[in-house]
Write a protein that binds this DNA or RNA. Structure first.
Lengths: 106, 106
DNA sequence: TCTTTAATTTCTATTTATGTTAATTAACGT
DNA sequence: ACGTTAATTAACATAAATAGAAATTAAAGA
């Protein structure tokens, strides 16, 4: 469900984790603590939420758990927005223009 | 902040409200109750959250409050995803392909 | 084997979010 | 003015999310 994806990204810490992974690529859980003043258990649980929402995935390397963003997750969000943009952008732009025009007239 | 936008869309009821507005255009608060079995006060507060997140806007028409999606909000989400897609999609695709190939080899 | 490192799960406390009922505000129609 | 409709705000109860400390699991390295 789309809203689970949004809910997972709706927390400031989780959003920061995802952005860090997007910018720096695959990282172990320990390195993700740098996103804020937060304990390892808290990070771990946030990672679980993101994983269950399908936004990140885990790879085990020795005693480290490596995390990375699932490309499909970002793509899905883009497609959701794009779906409405494609079909509605033009009419929305026309509506916006009309409202602006209306404002100018008044 | 981006994560406030996601947080607002992370609730099932609010997500349904936004989808209804995207599909049907501007609607009064009363009509948005149809998204589920929920009381008018609950809907009203969800609308407030969406409004404060900049996702919807309100227009007053007589005794009715008309709500609609702000085009820029959808665009912003699309652009966030697109920003990462544009810069990372190719390398991510390459990574995916490499992992698949690795899987085939094993 | 023993100690250290990495990360998670358990436990518990606290905060935040959500929902309902009741009361309030505001405008419409008679 | 009065009753009705539309929607919100207030008050309160409950559920869900988040956090840290402590305990647990698992592998690494001496």
């Amino acid at each position: 469900m789309m809203h689970d994806t949004f809910a997972a990204l709706g927390d400031a810490t989780r959003f920061a984790i995802v952005e860090k992974l997007l910018n720096e690529g695959e990282l172990p859980a320990g390195n993700l603590q740098e996103v804020g003043t937060i304990s390892p258990p808290a990070i771990s649980r946030h990672l679980k939420v993101l994983r269950e929402a399908g936004i990140i995935e885990q790879r085990i390397d020795k005693q480290r758990r490596m995390y990375s963003v699932r490309p499909q997750a970002v793509r899905t969000i883009g497609e959701w927005a794009m779906n409405y943009q494609e079909f509605w952008q033009k009419s929305l732009d026309r509506l916006e223009a009309a409202l602006l025009q209306e404002g100018n007239d008044a």
